[in-house]
Computed example of a mutant assay.
Amino acid sequence: MDKKDTKYIDLNTTLSAVGKAVFVNFYYDFKNASLSDNVIAEKLLRENLNTKSDNQNFRIPRARHIFAEGNQLDALKIIIDSSRVDPMAREKARLILAEELVRTQAFKECVDERGFIEALNKSIVYTEQRESEYNNNPEPAKETRLIQTSRYQRSKKVSSNALLKAGFLCEVNAEHPVFVRKNSNDNYTEPHHLVPLFAQKDFPGVNLDREQNIVSLCSHCHNLLHYGADIDGVLYKLYIDRKDLLQLIGIEISYEDLRKYYL
């Protein structure tokens, strides 16, 4: 960066150099690392009538600098609070921020889940007594509080039972490769809450940490749901297979609404 260049001095200045409305309208283009600067520049020239070709030399790098520094959510908040920004751009910023907050929650739950699985792995041994039948009685939601690194309470017994019910096989396809646990005679599969625990606020009075909402997955399918670009084949099958069980414990949800939690 040129020493005389002050456009990165703070977030507001950087955002102003990009153009607040431009940042919102081309937000996902700036965010997409697979798109080259040239491709974005062509799109800006084509779709943004106020854009001049010589503006791209500073606009695109600055927009991407905001993402590189992890300041995109703060940038959206600045835009939302900026009365001089076009109302349509501000409303679009609100929608994008809401979507990004869902993604942030999903990522945090993924981190929490990984820590829980590590603890669960240590507890699964061949001598452990586990329940093989579903308890379909509705249960109230668990208290939301901080426990170690997890925001939402998870029961190792419940997750272990869910894996047992699936025969310690992948519920997407029972023929998916699995291996035997080092501390057990059981296969290694991972528990996954189909309706994520961070969705608890949308299901007041309903406990989401139930066997009916926990599917047994091979490592590949589990990671695909968290990190894959094309998840519908896996997610839709799990939804169809579990829809009736979810309803029994008070979880009513359409596939479209479930899909939103996996954005």
Rank of each mutant, 00 (worst) to 15 (best):
Q129M: 12
D257E: 15
N57H: 08
P177L: 12
L238G: 00
N213P: 06
L194E: 01
A68E: 08
S123E: 11
D29K: 14
I251N: 11
G167A: 05
S36W: 04
N137D: 14
V158I: 12
T189A: 05
A119H: 15
N173R: 01
K243E: 11
L224C: 00
V158A: 08
Q200V: 10
F30H: 09
T104V: 10
L146R: 13
T144H: 02
G233I: 05
F168Y: 13
F23G: 10
K243V: 05
S34Q: 08
S34E: 13
V24N: 03
Q247R: 15
G167Q: 04
E118C: 02
Q56H: 08
I78E: 15
M1P: 03
G70V: 08
L49D: 14
L15A: 10
T13I: 09
L258H: 06
N48T: 01
Y126N: 11
G250E: 12
A141K: 05
K243L: 14
H220W: 00
Y188V: 02
N185T: 08
S254E: 10
S219P: 01
C221L: 00
A41F: 10
L73Q: 07
E109I: 01
L258N: 02
S254C: 07
A93D: 15
Y236W: 07
A89W: 02
L263S: 15
Q212H: 11
F179L: 04
A93I: 06
R154S: 07
L164T: 00
Q153R: 11
A229E: 09
K165F: 00
G250T: 12
V178S: 13
K4R: 15
A162W: 03
V102N: 10
A166P: 01
K142C: 03
A119Q: 15
R84Y: 15
T144R: 07
